[in-house]
Nucleic acid binder design. Sequence first.
DNA 1: TGCCAGGAATTGC
DNA 2: GCAATTCATGGC
Length: 281
Amino acid sequence: MDTLIKLPFIYDFDSALIRLSNDPVNAVNIQGRFVRIPMAEGNIVTVRGIGTKEEPLFQLEGMLNDLQINTVKTIFHFDQSLDDVQKHFQQTDLAPIFNKYEGMPLVRSFSLYGRLMKGIIHQQLNKAFANTLTMRFVEIYGQQVEGVWTYPSPEVVAQLQVAELRNMQFSERKAEYVIGLSKAIAEGGLNLEELRQLDEEEIVRILTNYRGIGPWTAQNFLLFGLGKPNLFPVADVGLQNALKKLWGMDRKPTKLEITERFSDWSPYMSYAALYLWKSIE
DNA sequence: TGCCAGGAATTGC
DNA sequence: GCAATTCATGGC
């Protein structure tokens, strides 16, 4: 049973697919204009773009109930217009970037746990190597459903030994972080779904209590995991480089220099981050 | 080749 | 408390 979704606002699905394709874990087909995503319930859903940027139309294929349709809408930012965001940034220094990439949505992660694991793995590593490590992690400990890779469960990772991950070129600390956090989740000490109900500061406070999660990883989780619209990871090197370029500086701006100016982008600072990342891809 | 990478914990003062 | 150092390895 397929479902059609028509959006009454500009939405650039191709840019969403390109962004998703940066992560080799995702089953993206750019030319075919679709992505296959693993749902929490274990089934695979195909999201296919059959419209245009100006008249977005999507076909959802797979066994979907109403709840899953809503989940897909939330993940892909189908449930909220981008018009207000676009309008807001016209009055800021980011207007050229937003005009260039108009309609690029903030697509959420398919798995909260996967987002955290990916966040830890990517800390302080170049993207190419980080992706290699993430893919290795998923292929060895995760599972493939209808050809789509999914992250392993926290229960599986909680049972691993540090030495196993060391053999996969994880650093000692990274291995400890990944296993330790998975143990906390598997044993029930940390429930990621329940974090949704809390405010952002509380979520950051809880998450950063765990070894391996600092401000950057917590904000990464808020932005891409929960899809919070208004945060800007000032510690992110990629964003610092993007602002260096935008502001014509000969060095990266300091965190203070960023925070002095980023309130112009509120209440959509997450979109500022997303579009700035795009500007240096 | 040396510095950097979508950082975080630990140590040293 | 805050800054400097350590971790760890591929990429360019």
